[in-house]
Design a protein around this nucleic acid. Sequence first.
DNA 1: TCTGTATGTGAGACCGTTCCCACACACTTA
DNA 2: TAAGTGTGTGGGAACGGTCTCACATACAGA
Lengths: 343, 343
Amino acid sequence: MEHTIKEIALRAGVSKSTVSRVISGKGYTSLEVRNKVLQLIEELQYKPNAVARAMVSQRTHNIGVLIYRRHHPIASHPFYGKILDAILMTAASMSYSVFVTTDHEMSLRSADFMMEKRVDGLILISRLQQNVIDYIANFGVPYVMVNGSTDVDGVMHIVNQDEEGGRMVAEHLADMGHRQIFVIAGPQTHRSHNLRLKGFKNQLKELGIPFPSSSILQASTSTFGEGYELMRAHWEEFRAGGYTSLFATNDMIALGAMKFMLEQSVRIPEQVAVVGFDDIDFAAMFSPSLTTIRVNMEEMGIQAFSLLDKLIRQEAYIEHPKQLVPILVVRQSTQTFSIERSG
Amino acid sequence: MEHTIKEIALRAGVSKSTVSRVISGKGYTSLEVRNKVLQLIEELQYKPNAVARAMVSQRTHNIGVLIYRRHHPIASHPFYGKILDAILMTAASMSYSVFVTTDHEMSLRSADFMMEKRVDGLILISRLQQNVIDYIANFGVPYVMVNGSTDVDGVMHIVNQDEEGGRMVAEHLADMGHRQIFVIAGPQTHRSHNLRLKGFKNQLKELGIPFPSSSILQASTSTFGEGYELMRAHWEEFRAGGYTSLFATNDMIALGAMKFMLEQSVRIPEQVAVVGFDDIDFAAMFSPSLTTIRVNMEEMGIQAFSLLDKLIRQEAYIEHPKQLVPILVVRQSTQTFSIERSG
DNA sequence: TCTGTATGTGAGACCGTTCCCACACACTTA
DNA sequence: TAAGTGTGTGGGAACGGTCTCACATACAGA
């Protein structure tokens, strides 16, 4: 049942200008005409055509979310998925619709598509190549980056205070009496992993706790499988080192490593304490639940959209967003105390 | 840099009809003109305006995905998120863009929005109220339902063979020698949970294994927290019953229940074997990993989109899709054998 | 009576495409 | 030579809205 303004006008015996006026509420319309038109709209279930509107207003009220992942598109990712959810909610509350697309690295196909669809703005999540940025910037569409791989000058970028989070991890482990700490660091290609490690190291140095380079393992992906595999491959080394604790720069790696240790009948946290980073849902659900640094993913999504909205509306004096403050969440993997629930 | 066909035409010294012909490849164009136009397009980074195209073709090449959730929008859901991912990939491969929206029950806001945006079709995921169906059907937009709460006549509905899966669970547990089986059943409002339970019960009866109504617990949500809480609340009852195994109608509930039992130092699977349903990523990662029935979520997404595409293209003789075949995945929670990896 | 302002309405240009139609020219072929 | 056919091009309507402008009427105040 596709109806048009013209049809409504015809049936109401008025011009389409008048119908348009009734709908938009702008300009004068007599009560009589207004009621008649409104009634027809209700009766015919008329819905304004957003495509036609976009045509004249030069604004689609659509935004695009681009998620770049190594090999596969991942909207269901425990970290990025949360951000996406927040964007979806915020956007909807401000009457924006959201295109979600994923793309491989180096591919401009999705970006291209979004340009053709004339989105009002773009949110770029995760690792994003310089060529994509250039491409989008060149086209002149407002965009915001979330948790990107690097900081780029002049680009609005929503990030967490990763360095501070790393510092908190070191502090917590030191507080719990740990001096022999093992680390699995996520991909060096990613900004956040590097900063987390940096903050962690600095704080150890501050506290006078030695941290030899032999205590650190470099992961090539930030996945559960990678954590599991690395722990398995270096298990003898780990045991020989007399380590009492493990820090992985994200939860997935930490959980993978933990799973392997549990299979070796290691008691966590009694024999080895474990700390992750992100606080994905899964961290609280795992047994034992994982101590971690909570990254406010929801807030990242909200901020990303709000900022984009401002850019779209060209509000003056947009200041670069403040980095989000992380929180230490202590759970069973570093401390045996209470039973925690979640869901 | 927003360029139009008109501009290209002007610069090339031809009419916009000619430019349009070059772009679409339809009709005759001289090699000379073609090259010149193509060069200009490249030079000016011209991108055809999909909005204008949609205007005339009456086809946006956009589809909408509606996810209905109890309280909060959840694209990052371990089950629905996977389906969404598959839809996103398949749609992209066929040059469709996807609007993703979530809505509360009973709300037509998102549906309304999609109608205004003139999507070519809709995919409705999860619980969906009759009024929403009616509303959409009334508007005449093609749509496909995925894992909906009920079967509705005449609606294309992608589902898993849930009853068969339930049967497989009973068979597996019986095979492993279990006779005292406890069950936590997901919300009765949802089709799949009911069918899983039904298949399970039927198979037990078939095998002559008694299953008193006291062995079943009714969950009100299908979440981790609910599983944990129910197990906690009925722990004494469970112990007294002498149960050797637990079946929950989805993984999240199973994992929650497992987490509680692990905290009570129950050895899984030695003392209690556990089986879930869905095979969300998390099931393989948990320690111990969870035996479950694998639902091919990716295939659900692919089928949903493919079917929708056919509906949109009005292909004749569309047959109702076959139900997807589930697979039993045996892991540590019912059997101690090998070390399994995943990631 | 004239001018000004508030109220109400319709005509038509415009947004950026596609596509139908008319037309022009160069060759065949009857 | 006339009639076709293949090739190449431009004009302009149409898609469904918004918005500016012109115009009409009513009523106020000077």
